[in-house]
Design a protein around this nucleic acid. Structure first.
Lengths: 119, 119
DNA sequence: TCGATACCTGCACAGGTACGCAGCTATGCA
DNA sequence: TGCATAGCTGCGTACCTGTGCAGGTATCGA
């Protein structure tokens, strides 16, 4: 089976059959990008700390997150805006307090896996 | 239990007890950074494609990876250098061909999980 | 109504990172 | 000994992103 795109079909391969396997393993480009974006959201220590806190503690207010992580309020707010735009978290307004929680299942699994080896 | 560091102990909390829970959930800063770095390596589509290919297909040469991903050789080489420095992959020289494979178990689990919903 | 609190937004700056190009080293073959 | 191939490195550029500051909006209590 020839999975190599036409624009690079003339290039020499070392293990020709493995190249096709590799292309099949990579799969759809959009799928890869989706996962890369997902990982990207977890790639920042501050954001990861926010998510770990939200994951294990449940609904948390912005200023509480700021105290727990040592960030200042706008930084937390911006990080949450990013996560909210990506559909990872959601916030529920209660008076003047907004409590956030994780809603994306895939991200929740990653966080669970990440928090597993936490002493 | 007071887990809030002294430099921010005077700040007002919304749900005081949850702040302590959150700090406990976040855990050691080094641990968070380690995971953030791990996720960071998977956060680039090209790098993720390389790792997916290596994960499922096994030892692969640099130029084969270049063909499979559509990158040019130096780009693949640089990405692999990064991954090798992080201890995620390793390369074995066989004549003038170097075949890479994934060696980090945590990363392998993430890749497995990521490739699970691949049509 | 006045002030304080909780949160959000826009902007500008610094830092990091991916990418392409050119050139280098090393191995295998004739 | 030439010559092509496989892979690596350095450099420069463009881009993205995290962060802090200043200011704005909405809600609650006095």
């Amino acid at each position: 089976m020839h999975l190599v795109p036409a624009d690079r079909a003339d290039r020499r391969t070392i293990d020709g059959h493995r190249v096709c396997d590799a292309i099949a393993a990579i799969g759809d480009e959009a799928h890869v990008r989706t996962w890369a974006d997902r990982f990207s959201l977890l790639a920042d220590p501050k954001r990861l700390a926010l998510l770990l806190a939200l994951h294990r503690t449940g609904p948390l207010a912005v200023s509480d997150l700021a105290i727990a992580t040592g960030m200042n309020d706008p930084a937390v707010s911006q990080a949450l805006r990013l996560l909210r735009a990506a559909g990872v978290v959601t916030g529920e307004k209660e008076g003047r307090v907004v409590r956030y929680r994780v809603i994306d299942e895939e991200t929740r699994l990653l966080l669970k896996h990440c928090a597993a080896d936490n002493p």
